[in-house]
């Protein structure tokens, strides 16, 4: 067997990465944690809810997907605090974050109807002039390697367009959350098919 840590011939200065594998169907008792959807801190004056469906190529909801969010705080800070998975020291049970520090991390499994929701805050620009967004990783049974996408809030539609000038309008729209009512935004993730969500790769 090949020892894992040796350079690859094509790229001698860099170790080849460990390959991805699907999250499978049975992550539900291991990865989700209490309060995983509650990214906003307690007393947040202006919380938002972002929610939607994860859909397959036939338009059917995916009940065994996992959605993760990573984002800047309202002031644009990307220095998320630890403590998303805070433990009770007596029982060792995960009790989740204490609501004081912004960890920037959310993790929610889809429900039986393919729906997910997080309660968070609109991210600020991560540098002066940056177009803010929520970074998303999607995992599912049947998906061999997770996918990255981004959620842009509707007020940043122009900035989004400027960032990806070559993307056709129809595809661009898949990155834009729809405002449903004050503080509530809809963002469906379509893994395949008509209106397939734009996914990203970071080479």
């Amino acid at each position: 067997m090949t020892p894992p840590a040796h350079p690859s011939p094509a790229d001698p200065d860099r170790l080849p990465p460990t390959p991805a594998q699907t999250v499978g169907p049975f992550f539900g008792y291991a990865l989700p944690f209490p309060g995983g959807a509650r990214i906003a801190v307690d007393g947040e004056p202006d919380p938002i809810t972002v929610h939607g469906l994860v859909l397959d190529g036939a338009g059917s909801p995916i009940p065994d997907a996992l959605v993760e969010i990573w984002q800047a705080d309202r002031d644009g800070s990307l220095a998320g605090a630890p403590g998303s998975l805070r433990h009770d020291q007596v029982t060792s049970a995960v009790v989740g974050r204490d609501g004081t520090a912004f960890t920037g991390f959310g993790r929610v499994p889809t429900d039986a109807d393919g729906h997910w929701a997080v309660r968070t805050v609109a991210p600020g620009p991560h540098r002066p002039g940056a177009v803010p967004y929520l970074a998303v990783a999607v995992f599912a049974r049947g998906l061999l390697h997770h996918l990255h996408t981004r959620i842009y809030l509707p007020e940043h539609a122009e900035g989004l367009r400027a960032q990806f000038p070559d993307l056709p309008e129809g595809r661009l729209g898949t990155l834009l959350a729809q405002r449903e009512r004050a503080g509530v935004y809809r963002f469906d993730i379509r893994l395949q098919g008509e209106r397939e969500t734009v996914f990203f790769d970071f080479p």
Binding site: A135, L143, L144, L147, G193
Partner: peptide
Amino acid sequence: ALRHPRHAPLPVVDPEAVE
């Protein structure tokens, strides 16, 4: 079969990306 994108992922090379 129904859970993979048909479009190739869009490459992002941006040293200031949130990711």
